[in-house]
Design a protein around this nucleic acid. Structure first.
Lengths: 183, 183
DNA sequence: GGTTTCATGTAACATGTTACATGATTCT
DNA sequence: AGAATCATGTAACATGTTACATGAAACC
């Protein structure tokens, strides 16, 4: 079992912002990275252990208070993060269940297909609102994010907004084209 | 090892169009499903075996000529396909390396970030052309796709087109916003 | 006092990719 | 004749999720 790759960079990145516990990392990916990156405990804790072993992170001394275990990025970890950042991004393999179902939509009733697309549209509309809200939170209060980072974070939110809008548009036009179909 | 789920529905769907060999299935996902769904041999062949065992597909009699093994969907398989089509789509977990790198873009030079985004833009531009070409091929010659299915297939291509365009737009605006940044 | 959230962790499972092995056929 | 494509398959690896177990602290 490797249980490493990909997650280690997310963890290194989060720890480069500030020292955190495993729980903090999970919370960060659920809230800040919501919709772009996900982590789960079954991955986080074993990965943290391996990263300690390889010297990419370390326990924060004096902070091992109650039952929390706080980690910080080391110089070696910072180097590893920078190295990864400069590497080419490999395009991920896509497996869209929606597209698959639509392609075999012949075997589905028109109504069921429209219903499926409506549900997708609802999801994207919810997401759009979520990203717009996050964007407002970013611009209003200074929050914990530094000004420089906020430019990057705003770009990420814009990506969510643009993609959600595109998906909504597509759902609508596809529903319309199906309604025009006879049978 | 299960080596089943998800792939079985792609296979059932493809076989519902016409009987095919494992190789045909791979080719179909590379060409027709390109960008929406991917399959690999390490998955296809073991899955086909399991599907034979569970009676979802069968060998096409008399067609086991040379070294090709052709499979066809059974009535049970058709039922399974329809059942899956009516099930709710679960939203897939997202892990976007690009977004992760952008979020930690603080640790990257501005130029490197812009370069990264340019490369992404190029990829999406290539994809856009690919989808537009596929759309033209669909409308010009009748190809092998039936008229009814072509409506669904066109919707899929439209999805690729709209998404590619949205991504290009986002790359451009993000590059611009970074260029305006000092430092 | 009970529920929710915080907090850490493991084991089993699910899923998917890559590398390798083999050999026929077709194209140049 | 040699290279590319067709064709099938396995084993090892890589990766990721879910369910379970445990218990403290905070909230209501």
């Amino acid at each position: 079992m490797s249980l490493v790759n990909k997650s280690i960079y997310a963890i290194l990145g989060i720890l480069s912002i500030q020292p955190s516990t495993g729980y903090d990392i999970k919370r960060y990916s659920d809230k800040v990275l919501s919709g772009f990156w996900n982590e789960n405990f079954g991955h986080i804790y074993p990965t943290l252990k391996k990263m300690i072993e390889s010297g990419l992170i370390e326990n924060v001394p004096g902070e091992v208070e109650d039952r929390k275990i706080k980690y910080a990025i080391t110089e070696k970890g910072k180097g590893e993060l920078k190295k990864w950042l400069s590497e080419e991004i490999q395009t991920p393999a896509v497996r869209s269940e929606l597209m698959l179902k639509l392609l075999f939509g012949n075997d589905m009733s028109k109504e069921a297909t429209i219903d499926m697309l409506s549900k997708q549209k609802d999801i994207h509309e919810e997401n759009l609102i979520k990203y717009l809200t996050m964007q407002q939170e970013l611009t209003c209060e200074g929050s914990q994010i530094t000004a420089k980072r906020s430019v990057y974070y705003n770009a990420i939110l814009r990506k969510g907004i643009i993609n959600s809008a595109a998906n909504i548009e597509w759902c609508e036009e596809t529903i319309e084209s199906l309604k025009k179909l006879k049978g």
